[in-house]
Design a protein around this nucleic acid. Structure first.
Ligand SMILES: [Zn+2]
Length: 276
DNA sequence: CGTGTTTGACCCGCGC
DNA sequence: GCGCGGGTCAAACACG
């Protein structure tokens, strides 16, 4: 009967371990969610940072990158002032990955938008949607275009145009509520499902000193995604604490599909290079 | 009934 | 001028 007892105790152990595992899994999920929220915050902050930097640099690079490449510091400003009027209309492009393939093109970025048009474009089967900031009647000039990416329809390309002259969403709490109980309209981030790549367009490579960091938040995939990477991560999280994130990143960069996606995204973000 | 989306018409710049 | 492509308008419509 020793054997039997050993067996039952073993079963007990298995049970508790399983329970442990389950709780850890839940914790993992919430952590994932929080990570995603952080990533989104980070992305947004970075976008803002880019904008401010662009502002500080006086949009010099913006116009310079737009094909008139005669660069003489004083001329530039004159030209800019002359032709660009008071509002420099910064544009920035961000790539957003959405897991649901059919979704209507809504990039929730904390602002509220009103759609005012949709067009089919020449070289992209999916239509392009035009949005205006809903504060437009109050004088906010910001517009954005959203279109699915040509080759990777799970990506949305959002092109922002202009700057908001008001705060992010005066009333509704924007996309980031500090915890999981966000019962907002669209803020649904079910189990981590979105990855953003932000690449502020006006910065080509000429500007080595300021390399626009491509903010990539890892696609924290939901339960549907059975990527082997998840297992790695889970193992890491179980074995150790968050110390192994770097290893995770390493595993990520070794993942061919990930690197391919990244390469595609980067290539897409640099039409100049692409053409050359 | 107010509000936001749809969708074809319209406009405008550009190359031929 | 004409056609094309991208951007916007606004009437109709959907929805609460
Ligand atoms: Zn606005």
């Amino acid at each position: 009967m020793n054997n039997m007892e050993a067996h039952t105790s073993c079963n007990e152990k298995v049970k508790t371990l399983r329970a442990d595992l389950e709780s850890l899994r839940k914790e993992n999920e919430t952590l994932r969610f929080k990570l995603e929220v952080m990533n989104r915050k980070c992305n947004i902050l970075q976008a803002h940072l880019q904008e401010t930097k662009a502002q500080q640099l006086g949009m010099i690079d913006l116009t310079a990158s737009r094909s008139n490449s005669e660069i003489t510091s004083c001329k530039r400003s004159v030209r800019i002032i002359e032709q660009q009027v008071p509002t420099p209309t910064k544009t920035s492009q961000i790539l957003v990955r959405t897991n649901s393939t059919d979704n209507s093109q809504v990039v929730k970025d904390g602002y509220q938008w009103r759609k005012y048009g949709q067009k089919v474009t020449k070289d992209n089967p999916s239509p392009r949607a035009y949005f205006r900031c809903s504060m437009a009647p109050a004088g906010c000039p910001v517009k954005k275009k959203v279109q699915r990416c040509v080759e990777d329809k799970s990506f949305l390309v959002a092109t922002y145009d202009g700057e908001h002259n008001h705060d992010v969403n005066s009333h509704v709490p924007a996309l980031i509520r500090d915890s999981l109980s966000s019962s907002d309209d669209e803020v649904v981030l079910p189990k981590g499902s979105v990855a953003n790549i932000i690449y502020p367009e006006p910065y080509p490579l000429e500007n080595h000193s300021f390399r626009p960091s491509i903010a990539l938040d890892l696609s924290l995939s939901g339960p549907n995604d059975k990527s082997p990477r998840n297992d790695v991560v889970e193992n890491k999280l179980h074995n150790n604490n968050c110390n192994d994130i770097e290893e995770y990143v390493a595993s990520l960069t070794k993942d061919p599909s990930f690197t391919a996606a990244l390469a595609a995204a980067v290539a897409r973000s640099m039409p100049h290079l692409h053409a050359a």
